[in-house]
């Protein structure tokens, strides 16, 4: 259900932009909306980060995933249980660059045998693998796009293009990332639809971005390999947008405006959605803090007042019993009465 709603939403976006551009509204889909989308993305993103940063981190609550730093003769595991800032940076880098926590993934199976149940934890790294492929392809494709925005094309973009097409298949040359990202999006989608657990937890806001990204990829791939869109015209047009002196969109096929519009939709949607995990992962207090509260004092900015049942009050409650039992007291019985 949520899947179909999302699909209809994405198709509607596609149709609106395609036919809109065909009907001569290139200025809207090709200029107004992109400007708005970029502005919306930047402001939304900044606002969201600000709103997170505004809430303090009162306690150090890292999830410790390895041996703590203790005696010299016990080897600690600083990447999973960092006790210094630099090790914490290391932990974060591994999280962000290799999705380390996801790498731990297992899948539980209960075998019901003659001899009673057997609970097994099978390794389940598919999600990790495809998530990693998806993100790296996304990154590479994003960076490759800089050849449209920059003149001359920066060397790293050329390098990426070269590496990405290293197998030299077809003309225009096939980029591996194009194939891989489709496979990865496909996997993530199919998993959502066919894995019962995941389907049960999925919302529209889970299918929608995946389908949207799928749409962006497909329209891009269509332009590159099938309709062979006039790249020079597109580059001239995009450079015009970036230098704030838009040129006419004459001669660019509507499919390009659809592609662009879907990207804009993604940009606008991004800050208000779960896609903000991009920013959030850096701020997650169970990962980005060292496990060092026994070694260093950390102050809670909204520290509540220290109120507790004092020893004096306790002794007042039990003094007689304590004296009788021979426990030392601060105020002897006779003095306390007075």
């Amino acid at each position: 259900m949520a899947f179909f709603i999302s699909l209809i939403l994405v198709l509607t976006l596609c149709a609106a932009s395609y036919y809109g551009a065909e009907a001569g509204m290139q200025w809207l889909f090709g200029m107004t909306i992109p400007y708005l989308a970029i502005a919306g993305f930047v402001c939304g993103f900044a606002y969201k980060i600000y709103s997170w940063a505004k809430s303090p981190v009162p306690f150090r609550i890292p999830t410790t995933g390895g041996q703590q730093y203790s005696h010299e003769w016990i080897k600690n595991d600083p990447l999973d249980n960092p006790h210094t800032v630099s090790w914490t940076v290391g932990r974060m880098l591994l999280e962000i660059l290799t999705f380390r926590s996801l790498f731990r993934n297992t899948e539980v199976v209960i075998h019901r045998t003659e001899d009673g149940p057997r609970v097994a934890y099978n390794s389940a790294r598919w999600l990790w693998l495809f998530a990693l492929i998806f993100h790296y392809c996304f990154l590479v494709i994003f960076l490759r796009h800089f050849r449209f925005f920059m003149d001359p094309v920066p060397f790293f973009v050329r390098g990426l293009e070269f590496m990405d097409g290293i197998f030299q298949i077809g003309a225009p040359r096939l980029y591996q990332t194009d194939v891989l990202i489709l496979a990865a999006v496909g996997f993530l989608l199919l998993r959502r639809v066919f894995d019962q657990k995941v389907r049960y937890i999925s919302l529209i806001s889970d299918y929608f971005p995946l389908l949207l990204i799928g749409g962006i990829c497909l329209s891009g791939i269509y332009m590159r390999y099938l309709s062979k869109t006039d790249i020079n015209a597109v580059k001239t047009y995009v450079m015009g947008l970036f230098t704030l002196s838009p040129v006419s969109a004459e001669g660019i096929a509507p499919i390009f405006f659809m592609h662009l519009f879907l990207v804009c939709a993604l940009l606008l949607y991004f800050p208000w959605s779960k896609l903000m995990h991009l920013g959030g992962v850096f701020l997650s207090p169970t990962r980005n803090l060292p496990n060092d509260s026994r070694m260093r004092l950390h102050v809670n900015p909204w520290k509540p007042p220290k109120k507790y049942h004092t020893y004096e009050a306790y002794e007042d409650d039990f003094r007689e019993f304590m004296v009788e039992a021979g426990l030392p007291v601060d105020k002897p019985l006779d003095k306390a009465d007075a």
């Binding site: 997170w52 809430s55 303090p56 999600l127 657990k197 937890i201 779960k274 701020l283």
Partner: peptide, 22 residues
């Protein structure tokens, strides 16, 4: 407003389900 942990955990779950059977 007092716990960044809470706020972030409310916002960024992608419902990937990695935690589901843990």
């Amino acid at each position: 407003e007092r716990y960044r942990s809470f706020k972030i955990f409310m916002d960024i779950c992608v419902r990937c389900g990695a935690c589901a059977d843990k």
